[in-house]
């Protein structure tokens, strides 16, 4: 017993080392990770980095072009855009991580149950997921926001609902390929309970595809939050949500284009970071992609 545990641990350790090596050699994943880490640091230290209070309005400083005092300029109410963009990173990350963590939690349970038990349970759950995926994501999120009411936590709830089926699908197919493996069959033969098999045998091996799907979906969720806030159905003023800032800036496009340019760049860089990380992870973890490229 002791030796078998030992060999499993060392096999896992070896796999981990291989993963880290491949990750280091993957430029895309490294750039993505760097951007994401920087972003998280900015979000954590946002109050320290931001030179001004984000709600301080000033009539004489209205719509000022970028300068040394205000590197990103000021908005129509004289608020410092740099400070608001910096604080906005918290909102984007909060929604992205919040929505996708919830979707991962629910989606993994649905996917694993569906894939493990099969039959009618599988059929029913998957048709429900299909139905949820039959709505364009942004339309479904929009409709849910109308019902829930415009509020940042409701954005998380709505986006968690929208992205759960995508996670569930990945979780299901990962479970299906695992349940055919010899170690699961032998666990069943040993008479282990379904719950134990799912938690100790199946789940750990579905992590890789779920990780990839999760990081790509964080990017989508961040884009969706920006879109919802832009349409007035997400974060409400004076929240420094990047999408909301762009919506406000729309009216001043000609006189103060920096009002949309800087929050726009912030969204772009953030989402590029998560997309590159997700894409890099997929290259590393998916042997099929390896073969093609």
């Amino acid at each position: 017993m002791a030796t078998s545990t030992l060999s499993i641990t060392s096999a896992r350790k070896e796999r981990m080392e291989r993963f880290v090596r491949k990750f280091r050699n993957n430029t895309k994943a490294m750039i993505g990770l760097t951007i994401v880490v920087l972003l998280v640091l900015v979000a954590i230290f946002a109050p320290v980095i931001a030179p001004y209070e984000i709600d301080t309005t000033s009539v004489e400083d209205r719509s000022e072009a970028p300068s040394v005092a205000h590197p990103f300029g000021t908005d129509d109410l004289g608020r410092d855009i740099f400070s608001r963009v910096v604080m906005g990173s918290r909102i984007s990350l909060y929604v992205g991580f919040g929505a996708i963590s919830a979707a991962l939690l629910v989606g993994t349970v649905i996917g694993v149950v569906s894939g493990y038990y099969g039959g009618m349970v599988d059929e029913l759950l998957m048709r429900l997921m299909d139905a949820a995926m039959s709505f364009p994501p942004i339309l479904l999120a929009l409709t849910l926001m109308v019902v829930l009411g415009p509020d940042l936590n409701n954005v998380i709830l709505a986006l968690a609902f929208v992205y759960t089926p995508y996670i569930a699908r990945v979780g299901r197919s990962a479970t299906l390929s695992e349940t055919n493996e010899a170690y699961v069959e032998s666990a069943i033969a040993r008479g282990e309970s379904s719950g134990r098999i799912i938690f100790s045998e199946v789940l750990p091996n579905t992590t890789a595809p779920l990780l990839v799907q999760g990081s790509l979906n964080i990017a989508f969720a961040m884009l969706a939050e920006a879109s919802l806030s832009f349409l007035g159905l997400g974060a409400q003023p004076p929240t420094p949500s990047w999408g909301l800032m762009i919506d406000t800036g729309r009216g001043f496009m000609q006189s103060a284009p920096w009002m949309i340019i800087f929050p726009g760049l912030a969204i772009a860089i953030t989402v590029i970071g998560f997309n590159m990380l997700g894409d890099g992870l997929r290259d590393i973890l998916d042997p099929k992609v390896d073969a093609i490229e």
């Binding site: 990017a219 884009l223 920006a226 879109s227 832009f230 999408g243 762009i246 729309r250 496009m253 000609q254 284009p257 949309i260 726009g264 969204i267 772009a268 989402v271 590029i272 997309n275 590159m276 894409d279």
Partner: peptide, 22 residues
């Protein structure tokens, strides 16, 4: 490719309006 998929549609729209229309 990364830039294309990472910028929300509404932002592309506004950038295009700013550059090509305004």
């Amino acid at each position: 490719g990364f830039i294309g998929i990472s910028i929300p549609i509404f932002l592309w729209g506004l950038v295009f309006i700013l550059v090509f229309a305004v």
